[in-house]
Design a binder for these strands. Structure first.
Length: 274
DNA sequence: CCGATCCTGATA
DNA sequence: TATCAGGATCGG
């Protein structure tokens, strides 16, 4: 579910509230979510450490703990991290891991339970392939128009497929990719190496814009996304193609089309996008 | 490259 | 009852 803007919305909310607090206890009610060690080991290694900060790369969150081990989290489709002052504010369904802090609690909630938590070294490579192999973060200075043009040039895969490849650029997901391609006037199925340098520059700007707009509006809530405080995002009001199949394009009035690409729903305007 | 897979829940 | 869903990985 969450893409870069949703994950960053969660990160900034929870970091302020969990930073410098000690983990006094951890309750894991769904052990299979801990992917690379036992729940017992996860709990014993982390209990008593202090959360020094929360960082994000792509769609991953990293809880930096004071000991040699820290926590890596991927929310996948329906995961969320929530902070509550009072026990019970979010208790109930779909809360699978609870970090009790010196003050308040950090909850991992996940309806479809596709998300994962890993116990990783606090410094250096994590050993988690998906994380260690991430491309430049899509809102960092490391992601440039020139870099985008170069990585599009090297493949004939559809441009949308490349943008969703987290090893090429990290953080873009199915909603924002369709929105960015619409703004850049490029069809999702266009072969990547057919994108011109000028179009790549426009696409880079479109990606930057849609992600920052998503952030400014607290993320996009279509179904399940809630931030660290349980609030929904507002960016769904700004979507121009995602979920709008069968309705008129806001620019030209042509009916928005829907196709499947790599199993993902794909939305575009057949007139505005070439 | 495509589809199946991990899951639950909402909607058609 | 079937299909679809913000993701990522795996095997054929």
């Amino acid at each position: 579910m969450p893409e870069l803007p949703e994950v960053e919305t969660i990160r900034s909310f929870i970091e302020k509230r969990v930073q410098h607090k000690v983990i006094t206890a951890i309750d894991v009610s769904l052990p299979r979510l801990i992917r690379n060690t036992t729940a017992e080991n996860f709990v014993s290694v982390l209990t008593g450490t202090t959360i020094e900060g929360v960082s994000r790369r792509g769609k991953y969150l990293f809880l930096h703990c004071s000991g040699p081990s820290s926590v890596l989290v991927h929310l996948r489709m329906t995961g969320s991290l929530l902070y509550e002052d009072q026990p019970g504010a979010f208790s109930g369904r779909a809360v699978h891991v609870v970090f009790s802090l010196t003050e308040g609690r950090l909850l991992y909630r996940d309806i479809r339970t596709l998300g994962c938590l890993w116990l990783v070294p606090s410094e250096g490579p994590t050993g988690i392939k998906g994380y260690d192999n991430l491309g430049p973060d899509a809102i960092s200075p490391a992601f440039t128009a020139e870099g985008l043009y170069r990585l599009l040039k090297e493949t004939s895969r559809p441009v949308k497929t490349v943008l969703l490849d987290q090893t090429k650029v990290a953080g873009i997901g199915n909603i924002y990719v369709d929105e960015a391609l619409f703004r850049a006037g490029i069809r999702p199925l266009r072969r990547a190496h057919r994108v011109t340098k000028k179009e790549a520059a426009k696409l880079h700007e479109a990606i930057t814009d849609v992600l920052h707009e998503g952030l400014e509006h607290g993320g996009t809530t279509i179904r399940n996304f809630i931030s660290g405080n349980g609030k929904e995002g507002q960016n769904q009001e700004n979507l121009r193609v995602y979920g709008r199949e069968g309705t008129p394009c806001t620019v030209c009035g042509t009916t928005i089309e829907y196709v499947k690409l790599n199993g993902r729903g794909t939305h575009y305007c057949p007139k505005c996008q070439k």
